[in-house]
Structure formats: structure tokens, C-alpha cells
Design a protein around this nucleic acid. Structure first.
Lengths: 206, 206
DNA sequence: GCCGGGAATTAACACTCCATTCACATTCGG
DNA sequence: CCGAATGTGAATGGAGTGTTAATTCCCGGC
């Protein structure tokens, strides 16, 4: 059973009904108790405000976001890559149902991230190499996770600060170096080179 | 400009029109000459047959697949995870346009520049010849990249200093020579001549 | 063909800047 | 208040870069 959180400025009963008709369970986005699989936001009224709210939610718990828009609002989403999917008004229940299932399906897989013999268990925040657990601090874990999820390209210190430490973070670039160093040392001698430094550019994983 | 390949059993003119209205370029899926960004398949008629065809295409070149379905066909796609997106009949041009852009946007990952067997991976700052990595320093990479991106014409030392080293850079012209030399030596004996010196003018690549 | 002079190549060196590392300060939870 | 985690500043070492100068190459003139 899929649980969908709804957010709308206007009358929410329409959304609840739409969700329920798809066979999913509807909860308010303000319900802190319940865990949900997807957030459905209604951009038909107050789109800007709603988008901001959705972005916050997405950054908070990383759940997929699906938006309802009117056909004339398509440009709104052009540059909002973090919105995972959308449906156009009027909402077709069967279409919505299918999109719910596709989003929920994608979600379920990503329990764990791997690179060679390194495995990150995203649910338990544990990391193992060759099955042996290595203990990472929070920031080390976050950095490593970002590296693994976006491996194979260079990231500047500034980009890493933004993506891993947060958009509003304003700290020295040395911070990244030091954390990279700690990570390398915990990865062990041979695996330290998994993180390559690209001189005068940044770091690359894999 | 996004290029979309269409596939339908029935009359294809409807698809062509739909694609063209979104501002994209339409080609037949049977056109072997042209490269396309997305494949649009019409499942409204002969869905089983079309799905099979689409799967073949997807496995062949790995491009994103978007399907057109009727609302009653949603169950068709429940288990077809490799179909990247879909729109329901009747097709809304603006919605289709947005979905095209979102799919094409995801695609653009591996930016790369080539010349013969030389390949620059712009994302990872790595260079390979015949698939073997060669390690270049930052300036060597930047210079080579400029050469490849603007191959086939002569550049004076002054121009290169300005374009590669930066507008405000003020250094001796010999600097370029030396970097060209280092590049040539790293390219290897046979490929050293890819950079031609044009006496009393400058250098040309390719 | 042989010079001569300008231009490019090459080698060697000096220096700059960047990554690393260490040591310490600060924050946070218990 | 303690210890762990995280951030910052400063010292160090080294790779990368630029410059100088010696050498070689090219090309026209005689």
C-alpha cells in the first residue's frame, strides 16, 4: 500500500479524493507521525509558494515529489529538476495511479549503495568493506555517499560544500580536504586512491 | 534542439505533428542515418507489438522511451519499468514538450570531446588515447581542450594566452611553446604532429 | 651549397601555488 | 564536564608552471 502526502493551499478534499481513488492512502504533509512514500503537491494555486514548500520537504526526507499543474504551467517545471514527475489538470485517476506506482517502485530499490567491495547501507547508516564494518562519522558518511551516488566526475570543493554540507553553508574549502583525508585513511591504504584529487579542480570518486 | 524518433503502427502523421508542435525535430524510428534523443512510441494501436519493438530499440541504443497510451491502458505499463515516461491520450502539446525536455535533460551526462582516438572526458577531467588514460596537468588539459574545440585553424601565442590562460594574463609567449612541447610529448611520437607549428604565426590543431 | 638571422624547440631551473597534514578551537550530546 | 565530531589556521612538501638561456631548425639571400 502506497502512502501519499498531499499539500495544497486551497481545499484539500479534492486531493484526498484523487489519492484515495488511486487506491493509495492519503495523509497531510503536515502529519509528522506518519511516514509516506510520495508527496503530491498542487501547483494549480499559489505555485511559487507550493514549490518552495515542496523543495523543503524534498530536501528534508528525500521522498519523490509529484506535482499537479495546469497545462499552461509547464514552463514552471522546466528548471525544477528535483520534481520527479507531474500530472496535468484535469487529473486522470488511472494515470495518477500509474505514476504513483512508478515513483514508489523506483524508491524501493535504493536501500544500499555500492562501489566495488564497499557498501553503504542507507537505512542503517553503516558502511562495510569486504563485509567488515568501518565506522564513519556523520559527515564522512554523507561525503562518501555523495561521492558514490555521483561517482565518475570531478566535484569542486565549492560544489561539495554546497551539495554535502548544504546550500547555505559557508565554510572554508580546507574543510573538504580534511574530510577527504579522514575518509581516505578510513578506507585504507589501497582504497585511498578511490578518491582522486584533480589538481586545481577538485576531487573525483571512482 | 531535441530530436525525437516516432514509431506507430497506424498513421504516423499524427505523431509527427505532435512532435513538431513541441518544437522538437521528428524522425522515423527506422531512419538509421539520424541520431535521436528520445523515442516516442504510440501504444494506442497494437500495443504489444509496439512494446516489443520499443524494447528492442531501447536495448540497442539505450535512449529514453516515452509512450502514448489511452487512459485504460495504464496497466500495460505497470510492469514495464524500462519505459521512461508516458502521456495519456489525448496528447497535450505543452505537457509532451515538458516531458521531452525532462527526458533529454537527464540524458546529457557524459560530456566528451573527441579527435580521432583521443577523447577528453569533460566531467572527469580525464584524457584517453585508444582508451588508455594519459595524465595531463591542469594547463595541459585546458590547452588541449581548447585546441580540440577549435581545431583546424591557427592560433597565435597571444590568442592562446588570452583564451586559455585568461584575459588578464600577462606572460611571455614562450610559455605557450613549452606547454605545446609538453603536450606533444605526452601525446606520443606519432601523434605529436597533431599540433602543427605555423612558422611566425602560431599553432594549429588537426 | 653555404650563410645568417629569425623562429621554434628543448633543457634546466626557480618559484608559485595547491594539496596535505598537523594541531588546535569549537560545537554538540550525553 | 567530558569525549567525539567537526571546522579552521598555519606549516610543509611537492607538483605544476613560467622563465631564461642554449640549441636546433627553417628559409631566404647570396
Amino acid at each position: 500500500m502506497i502512502t501519499v502526502a498531499y499539500s495544497s493551499i486551497g481545499d484539500p478534499t479534492g486531493l484526498v479524493e484523487a489519492i484515495t481513488l488511486t487506491g493509495a492512502h492519503a495523509v497531510s504533509i503536515e502529519d509528522e507521525e506518519t511516514e509516506w512514500d510520495i508527496a503530491l503537491i498542487d501547483l494549480r494555486t499559489e505555485p511559487i509558494q507550493q514549490l518552495r514548500e515542496a523543495k523543503r520537504v524534498n530536501e528534508d526526507n528525500g521522498c519523490p515529489i509529484i506535482a499537479i499543474i495546469t497545462s499552461s504551467q509547464t514552463t514552471l517545471l522546466e528548471s525544477e529538476g528535483w520534481v520527479d514527475d507531474f500530472v496535468a489538470d484535469p487529473v486522470d485517476t488511472l494515470e495518477l495511479r500509474l505514476r504513483f506506482h512508478r515513483l514508489a517502485g523506483q524508491q524501493a530499490e535504493v536501500e544500499t549503495q555500492r562501489y566495488k567491495t564497499l557498501e553503504l547501507n542507507l537505512a542503517t547508516y553503516q558502511a562495510t568493506i569486504d563485509g567488515r564494518p568501518i565506522d564513519l562519522t556523520f559527515m564522512e558518511y554523507e561525503l562518501l555517499r555523495y561521492f558514490i551516488e555521483h561517482q565518475g566526475r570531478v566535484w569542486s570543493r565549492e560544489q561539495l560544500l554546497q551539495k554535502v554540507w548544504g546550500y547555505d553553508y559557508f565554510g572554508g574549502a580546507r574543510t573538504v580536504d580534511v574530510h577527504v583525508r579522514r575518509l581516505r585513511s578510513k578506507l585504507g591504504e589501497e582504497r585511498a586512491s578511490w578518491i582522486t584529487t584533480v589538481r586545481s579542480v577538485g576531487y573525483r570518486f571512482g
